[in-house]
Design a protein around this nucleic acid. Sequence first.
RNA 1: GGGCGAUUAGCUCAGUUGGUUAGAGUACUUGCCUUACAAGCAAGGUGUCGUAGGUUCGAGUCCUACAUCGCCCACCA
Length: 807
Amino acid sequence: MLDKKYEAKEKESKWLNYWQEKKIYEFKPDAREVFSIDTPPPTVNGKIHIGHIFSYTQTEMVARYKRLRGYNVFYPFGFDDNGLPSERLVEKEQGKKAKEIGREEFAKLCYETTDKYESEFQDLFSKMGVSTDWQIHYKTVSPTTIKISQRSFLDLVNKGHCYHKESPALWCNECLTSIAQAELETKTIKTTFNYVNFKTVEDNEEFTIATTRPELLPAIVCVFVNPEDKVHNHLIGKTAHIPVIDVEVPIMGDEKVAIDKGTGVVMCCTFGDQTDIEWWKKYNLPLKYIFTEDGCIASFVPNYGGMKIKEARKKIVEDLTNGGYIQKIEELEHEVQTHERCGKEVEYTVMKQWFIDIMNHKEDFLRIGNEIKWHPEHMHNRYNEWVSNIMWDWCISRQRYFGVPFPIWYCKDCGEVILAREEDLPVNPLVDKPSISSCPKCGSKEFIPETDIMDTWATSSVTPLINMRYGEKDNLESILKPMSLRTNASEIIRTWDFYTIVKSFYHFGERPWDNVMISGFVMADKGEKISKSKGNSKIEPMDAINEYSADVVRYWAGTGRLGSDIVFSDETLLRGKKLVNKIWNVSKFIEMHLQDYVDKEFNDFEYIDRWIIAKYQEMEKGFIKYLDEYEVGLALNTLEKFFWNFCDNYIEIVKHRLYRPEEFGDIPRYSGQKTVYMLLYKLLQDFSIFFPFITEEIYQELYKFNDSIHLTEIKFMDYDFNKELVTGDKLVEIISSVRGEKSSNNLSLKTPVKYLEINASQDIEEAINSSIKDFKATLFINNLQINHQDNDYEIKKIELEIEEKTA
RNA sequence: GGGCGAUUAGCUCAGUUGGUUAGAGUACUUGCCUUACAAGCAAGGUGUCGUAGGUUCGAGUCCUACAUCGCCCACCA
């Protein structure tokens, strides 16, 4: 028997253990069709917040739904312990920079730290009822993953999509590494706009350039004006003298110069910004790179060499002012590109780096985007927008320590790239030696290992490959190419989704998945995204589980619409709590009335039973439709609405028949038993997607067809009770009106109705007559009079038996 | 500045292809201890559907413009 009260905490831990012991969520390839989910490996950087719970739970619900629909669900979990986020976490915990700790020791600390957090993460996700097979979970830095990631790299190099080249790249002089365009974040900062006077060498004509970065004066290689600019275009062809620096550079024309910005005259440096690089390439300008990798002015720059960039800026403005070259200085608020991991302004650099070709295959990436179904559909635009506008090849070299090493050495003498052999993977070039003893090009016997590691996204973009064990003997390529579903939030469409598509296209020439499902964010309050940096999360996941139970927290997560943000709301949790409680109570009620029940073929359903069965079938259609679109929230809403109707109306009507067979007869009672038996099972299955714990508890007690409700399959009923669908609703309406009459007279619902007179159409009259016993019992009617009218119904008279209340 | 989305009851949100008096929950008020549930049941009031136009017999729903908010991108001289 079900307990009087449901103790969530105790039951949830019981079923967690049970599922684990019985391996309920184990993935084994078999004859069933596979539904595979590529879920984001959360970044191991300290904490899972309620936002993670929100989006992961929605995905999890899809996994449970597909399992109920008979799919063999492949749903592995991963952890991203790659690169910078982990390194920064370790640096923070140690209070020391990686450089000070030393490469080997640092990597060890990274492994220890990520392991520690991963077990915490796993515990939390398990407690939330995530139905993943932990046997096949992966880490983005592990021998297996490194092997697959390196194999992916070698494949791209061999196919000519990955190249090593000296090229401008984005550089973070806080993290001391190059970064990708996708890792940029724009920030508004306050700075000054300095109007600096220049002169032409030819005729000493003065002109002004406005700049936010005067420290770049020593890097100027050229001055540009717009050929359409009537004020300045006569300068084209002349030579500009750079004040203080005392260097002469040509003045050229280019239509990219905005006449109305600043003074309309622009200095071009190597490299101040994106445009500088474009001009540098377009006009083949000389390279005058003046920064060091740690954010200083290079020592070869006279007067300013060795200074920090900001110091140099100050000093140079001082010198300009003293020389009388500053016309004015304006305060300015403008947006700069910063590195999203550390928030520091990025610079450009020139060095040899590994790049993956993006620019030559944009059309292919767009085409593949079209082949994938996006949920919600409008998220496809985000992808298109990004791909269409991307301007750089993807730089995958990072000058960091912890991550996937490049399986590469360089010949010390001629610089020839020596690739590792595939059979030797995984390879750490710092420890391992190349398979060849001498350089095939020059014969040198000395090799230099690549010290860089790969970009975080270079490895997380291979999650489908990790899942399918790409290139391994026991691979799952045939069933996971493509995977069924990728899920993530909208902010990483341009990174994780895009890069995964790039890799899949280069490796296999096809899409990595059939569907992409995008979740929204959790907002702390209206208009404020919950983020680690702001620390504005009002609730910790573990606290929420302890306070409300995992099922209830899942309810909250499950109410969100795809792609839409959600606010953390106590009201929603309360609503979930009530729903879970109601499921328990109605199950107890049904269990009570099934003590003597034996399931058998039966078709002689009572009217009101036919009605609720028809209502269920109608609801189920919408429910399934929503789930097939991954709209778990709308599906839950549909189900919940039906469920309350089932409890408050149907159960209230049928209970009299279930309690009193002597009055209603054994067969009508059996009809009610059969109905609640069937529908509770269906409801438990449906609810098991959202509430895996409580539904399991009830299933095990009442049904137990197999080891777990989560291994059952949804079977559709096909009763044709369409007529009851409409007239039954009318019946409920009439019942509701009569109850209203009692209620507004401040009477108990048990108050007998002495006389009820209704005018009704033929259909409704038939409905009442077909359910006459249920109808009268529900409302406690003594005398009922039905008159005929053409359409609908009208309640003519309600006489209640009013007891005199004794004082 | 560009792209996408949102704007419906005090709060959190539904509203499917345009079709009568716009719906839930919550909060509030009133009543009811009804052989599952007081974490319950019944009843009740609450809305210029962001603003302004347009299409239509008919618009919360379609079109245009604007406003506010959010996400992403660009501008950074």
